[in-house]
Design a protein around this nucleic acid. Sequence first.
DNA 1: TTTATTGCAAATGGTTTGCATCTCT
DNA 2: AGAGATGCAAACCATTTGCAATAAA
Lengths: 129, 129
Amino acid sequence: MATLKFSRQRESIKQYLASTKEHPTADMVYMHVKEDYPNISLGTVYRNLNLLTDIGEALKIATPDGADRFDGCVKPHNHFFCTECRRVLDLDLDMKEIEQINKAAASNFDGIIESSNTIFYGKCGDCIK
Amino acid sequence: MATLKFSRQRESIKQYLASTKEHPTADMVYMHVKEDYPNISLGTVYRNLNLLTDIGEALKIATPDGADRFDGCVKPHNHFFCTECRRVLDLDLDMKEIEQINKAAASNFDGIIESSNTIFYGKCGDCIK
DNA sequence: TTTATTGCAAATGGTTTGCATCTCT
DNA sequence: AGAGATGCAAACCATTTGCAATAAA
């Protein structure tokens, strides 16, 4: 199997993901990394985002808006999607709360809910007015 | 504004959505309705699914698989996505449990979580082996 | 030198849209 | 007749992929 080789582009992508909490789309990552590597292509960004996701160094988040969002923080946590401003926000709960939620959700359900990655929907503080 | 007008195709789509619990994709709806209306087009299916979603007679569910899933059951409930078999399942909780989950999720979060539509991830009973 | 990674462009898959025609009301 | 709905095809957008060139080991 592929032995990972260093790449400046991938490094830049990782660094950007680690520096932001805005859960950017692949295109946003592309735009940003382009500032340092003007020749980088969207394909490379996608390839690296998928690679990072596969090896567990990034999270891919599906939203109703079509474009996936990426998260460089892989510590277990859940997400919130604001149906008004379309932002993805982190829900910062401790493991006890996460487990409590999962237990309640799985009552009379035959299956295993992952420790995190749950996506809640609603309106964020900024959008409630 | 548009005054809704009857259409056999839309009726057939609604009926199919009401009859299934498998959260079909637009294409699956298309294939099915095609049996009764061989001339129906994918565009018409999409237009109607979006219309039904807009007027609150159907639910659109985003998944990591790209294609959206649709649900004819609009009573408040949450969903579960099996990361192995890729199915969307219903989580049948009563309002008390749903509210309890939302309350726990919203602790130290500034915003309002919708009563339902939360998507959990994990492995379903069939896939745990 | 070997193999992973890149840039580019073409291809894919899901969904939307313009338009002429048809169908409800 | 008038407004909405349809079928078809073209357009769109996000993402993937093939390939020759490049860079890391």
